[in-house]
Simulated scan of single mutants.
Amino acid sequence: MGDVLYIVVPCYNEEAVLPETQKELGNKLETMITAGAVSEKSRIIFVDDGSKDKTWELIEKYHSENPRIGGVKLAHNRGHQFAVLAGLMTVKDLCDMAITMDADLQDDIDVVDKFVEKYKEGCEVVYGVRNSRATDTFFKKTTAEGFYKIMQAMGVDIVFNHADYRLMSKTVLDALSEYKEVNLFLRGIVPLIGYKSDTVEYARKERFAGESKYPLKKMLAFAIDGITSFSIKPIRLITTLGVGALCASALMIIWFIIGAVRGNTVSGWATIVISIWLFGGLILLGLGVVGEYIGKIYMEAKGRPRFRVEKFLG
């Protein structure tokens, strides 16, 4: 008998794609159980992140028809990262390993077998990594790859082209439960845990149905959260800019003194205006970055629950 696998799938307004998702994942799990790759106690858990459509009703329906399909209903919408964490923390004592993936069928479910094979070889974490971005627009490809490069430049240990399609062993899940931060960025937290890891490459598909839950605005907010949650380099960058601005000001003073000695006393209104805008912009930028960190400290200090499970269909 193989180890127990739980597949955790966060959902938010996914009624359009859920029928096909539960069908394909159900078939995959049955095939793996029949082949002896995983235990017959393995399950698929859909996490309803406060959906406003019929997502939870569908999950209850599938659970009544197939005992291997379960669900976690959050009491309030908390966002993708918290939905993933809620599902993992709910099932961590019920499984030997857990795989997280999105509900839109863009992640290739056929590589689940490779995930499990890597786990059996001794890997505690297996990352799903995109082998190509051919299906992305030029803008999406450029910004996405730029995000990973910026994160790495900021000192964040992040796997390039990896989202949240990964396998984690129970050992890693127990370790993850000890990370209590409210500003959640799992792509940065999981590599921090350590243990033996490996990657599996796959081709990401087009979304099967429905609309993306990550428009540009949310993607930018996600990127900012990731950077400020794991690096203080933006604050150090502001310090560097401040020192540079101070040096530039000193040079300008010297230049004006030399000009006055030579008798060139014509007022340079353009220089004044440019200087005001430059230093005003630097000040506002600095206040914004510092404010971002202070806001995160404020959120962490309150210590509010990160999520609340309303129902669990296990």
Rank of each mutant, 00 (worst) to 15 (best):
I7K: 07
V8E: 01
N13S: 08
N13W: 01
V17T: 14
T21G: 01
L29I: 08
E30P: 02
T31F: 10
I33D: 01
A35K: 15
A35G: 10
A35C: 07
G36V: 01
V38P: 04
S42I: 00
I45K: 04
I45T: 04
D48C: 04
G50H: 01
S51E: 03
D53P: 07
W56F: 05
E60I: 08
K61S: 10
N66W: 08
V72W: 02
V72T: 07
H76N: 14
H80C: 04
Q81V: 05
Q81I: 04
V84A: 03
L85Y: 07
A86R: 08
G87T: 07
V91R: 01
K92I: 05
D96K: 05
A98Q: 04
D102H: 10
D102F: 02
L105P: 09
Q106K: 14
Q106S: 14
D107K: 05
I109N: 12
I109K: 14
F115V: 04
V116Q: 03
E117L: 04
K118Y: 00
K118L: 02
Y119M: 03
Y119R: 10
K120V: 02
G122L: 03
C123I: 00
V126E: 00
Y127W: 15
G128Q: 04
G128I: 11
S132L: 06
D136C: 00
D136S: 09
D136N: 05
D136Y: 14
F138D: 14
K140H: 11
K141H: 13
G146K: 09
F147G: 11
K149A: 15
V156P: 02
V159Y: 00
N161T: 12
Y165W: 12
Y165V: 08
Y165S: 08
L167M: 07
S169V: 04
K170F: 08
T171L: 10
V172Q: 00
L173E: 03
L176V: 06
E178R: 15
Y179P: 06
Y179L: 06
E181K: 14
V182Q: 11
F185P: 01
Y195M: 14
Y195K: 15
S197T: 10
T199C: 15
R204A: 13
K205W: 12
A209F: 06
K213Q: 15
P215S: 05
P215D: 06
P215A: 09
L216K: 12
K218D: 14
A223C: 05
I224H: 11
I224F: 12
I224K: 12
I227R: 04
I227C: 05
F230W: 07
S231M: 00
P234A: 14
T239C: 06
L241H: 09
G242A: 11
G244S: 14
A245E: 14
L246T: 15
C247S: 13
A248I: 03
S249N: 12
L251H: 01
F256L: 13
F256V: 11
I258C: 10
V266C: 03
G268I: 05
W269F: 09
W269D: 11
I276G: 09
G280F: 06
G280R: 13
L284K: 13
L287V: 13
G288F: 15
G295V: 03
K296N: 12
Y298H: 13
M299S: 13
M299I: 12
E300L: 06
E300S: 02
A301R: 00
E310W: 06
E310F: 07
G314L: 02
